[in-house]
Design a protein around this nucleic acid. Sequence first.
DNA 1: ATGGCATGAATTCGAAGCAG
DNA 2: CTGCTTCGAATTCATGCCAT
Length: 709
Amino acid sequence: MLGIRSADDGYSLVGESQLLEHRERMQISRIVKQSPLSAQQVIQVLAMLLQVDLVTGAESEPNTQNTSENALGQDGDAPEDSFGLLEHILEWIMYGFFLVRDFAVDYPTTVILALQICVLCMLCFTLCRRGRAQQLRQHADDQSAVPTVAVHVKAFFRSKRFSLSQSFLNAAFGSEGKIQLRDAETIAAALLLFLRRHKSGLLGKTIDLKSAYRQLPLSSEALAMSFIAVKNPETGEVQFFRLLCLPFGAVAAVHAFIRVSLALCHLGQTFWLLPWSAFYDDFTLLSTKALSSSSEKSAAFLLDLLGFDFDRDGDKAQPFSSIFRALGVEFNLQDKEGRSFEVANTKERTEELVRDLGELASKEKICPKAWNKIRGRLDFVAGQLAGQGGSVQLLTPGSGLRFREQTQEGVGGQDMGLDAVLLNQEGCVMAWFGVFASAFRGQKVSIDSGYLRKRTWHLQSVKLAKRGNIPFEDRGWPIKNVSSSSCVAAGMMALVWHSDGGRNIAPGDLALEDRGAAYVLTFDVQRRDLSSVDLHAGICGLLGDPSRTPVPEPLLLSMVTLAWMKGYKRWCGCTLLAFYGMARVGEVLACRRRHLLLREDLFLFCPAVFLRLDSSKTSLHGRPKVQHIRVDDTRAMALIQSAFADLEPDERLYPFSPSAFRTRWDRSLQTLGLQDMVSVTPGGLRGGGAVAAYHRGCPIADIQWRWPP
DNA sequence: ATGGCATGAATTCGAAGCAG
DNA sequence: CTGCTTCGAATTCATGCCAT
C-alpha cells in the first residue's frame, strides 16, 4: 500500500485483515488510557510540526532584526512561496478528511487510504523542502557571532549538566497541564489484545531517539529568551550562550518533548497502523513475525520522514525479538502455545537488589538513607510490573508475572507474588516471608494486600520494626488492606531485626498501639538531615491552593472582631497567631502558654510576638525541631496580648479540641451571613497570612523564610 | 537539572454521632 | 438545636524509581 512498506514482505498481506481493525484499534486506544484525540488536536500537532520546520528552515535567525521573512507567519502574512500555500491547502484538505472521518466509519479503508495519501504528500513536501535535523545542526554551526546551542556548551563542559534555575530560566517559564504516560502496563495490555488475534509469533522491539530533546528547536519567542550565563571552568570568565534547541533541565522542555513524542506515536498508530507506544523517547513497537521487517521499515520511514534521528545500529538498536526490554522491564513472549507472555524485572536489577538486600541483612546498623533507598527500590520492583497498588514480587531470578489471555491471575494455581523468595549472594534462600513468619511469633496475624491472599503468620510479642503501619486484629483478620510494601518493609525490618538480635532496635523505639479491636505497630527509622526552603510550597501558599482558599484579611478581621465581641478571646488569639504567623492551625492549637513569648515577657524590648513550635508535621524529617512563628502586626499583638497574658504557663492556648475551633469558625461565618457564599476553612489561614504579607509589600524571599516548613 | 508515577505519614476536611 | 468528639476521606509533603 502506497509503497510505504517494503514489497519483499508481500505488502499485499498488510491489509486490514492482518492488522487490527479500525474498531479494535479504538479499543486499544481505550485500554492505553489514551483519550481519543480530536481531529483538531491532530491538526494542531501537524501544524506545530510544520511550524517547527519553518523556524529551522528560515534563512535568517527568526528573531533578529532582519524581518524579511516572518518565521512563523503569525503576523498576518501567509508565506509567499508556493510550497507554503500548498501546505496550507493540504492542511485544509486533511482537516476536511478528519471532519468526515467519524461519519465514514463504514468505509474505514477508503478513508484511511485517502488520509495516508494526504499526509504523505504533505510530509513529502515538507521533507523535500528541508531536512530538519541537518538544518538544525547547520543552523547551530552558523551562529558564530553569539556562542550558541548546546553543541557548543556541551563541547565546553562535556557531560556536565548545569542548572537552568540558576539562570532564572526556569523561573521565566511554566508549564500547564498534565501528561499521561504510557507505562509498561500499556504495553502489556496491547500485547494481550494482540495475543487474541495472533496466537504465536509475536515480536517486539524498542526504538530509541538520539539525544531526544536536542532534536527539537525552539520557537522564535523562546529563542529571544533562551540565554544562559555560564562560567567557563578553564578561564573563569562568564560567557553567554543561546540555546537553539530544547534545553535539558528546563521546566517546559519535558512537556514540549512529550507532546511531540505522543504526536509521533499517534501519527504512527493512525496512518501507518503501527502498534507502538511511546514513553519519552522510547518507542516500543510490536509486530508479528511475518510483518516484522515491514513494521520496522515503516517506523523508520516515519521517523526519517519527519527528520528524527534514532539509533539504527549499535547496542541500543535491538532487532525484533521475542524477548525485549522496555521501560526497565523485560517482556518475554516465548510461549509455545502463544497464550501468555511474561513480564519480569531485568536480571541485572534483580541480582543487584538481592545482593544489596543480603548486604543489608548482614549489617548491624541501617541508616535511614539506605533504608529509604532500598525500600523505594523494592517498591519499584514490585510495582512496576503489576501497576499501581503493587504486589509482592518474586525476586527469584527468572520468574516474573505471567499475563494470560483471559486474566492476570498467576499460573499453575499459584497466586501471584505469594511465597516470594529472596536469594542472597551465595544463593542461600532467605525467603522474607520465612523470616517474616519466624519473626512474628505467638500471635496470629493475617495480612491482605491486593494480590497477596490471606495468609496467617505468628506474631511475636516483641515489637517489630517497620516503617509502615500494619493494622491487624488479634483474631487473625486484617483491619484493612495493607499494601505489599508495608509487608515488604515489615519483612525487611524483621530481617534486620533478626540479624541484629534486637541490639540496635530498642523496645522503646517501637510502639504497639491498642486501638480497640486492633493493634497498630509503629516505629520510626526516618530521620533525614535535610533542610531547605520549599519554594514550591511558598508559591502555592502565596497563590493559594484551590482546596484551601486563603482567607482574605478583611474577612479575617471581621471574624475576629465578631468573635471577640462574643467573648471568644482565646479563639481570636489563636486565629491571629495562625494568620499573621503563617502557621498551621493545628500547630498553634497544640501550644501552651509557655510557648508564647509576649512583648511583656521581654519587658517590651521586642517588637513582635513569638510562638515556639515544638513539634510539627515536618519536624521528624530532620529539620530543626524547634520552630518559631512571628507576629508583628500591631493590632494583632494587642489582641494576642490581651487574650493570653493571664494564662498559667502550662495552660493550653486553646483548651478545646481543633474541631471545637472549627465549630466556632463556622459559627462566625454563619453570623456574618457568609456560610454558603465562601468556602474558607481554618486551613486557609496559613495561605491567607502569606497573601496578606505579600500585599503589605513583604518580599517573597522574606515570606518564604518565615514560612514554617 | 527537569518531568512522570508510586507509597506512606501527618494533617485537615466534612459528615455523623453524642450529650445536654 | 447547640457544642463538641470521632472517624473516614482527602490533601499535603516527603521519599523512591523511571526517562531525558
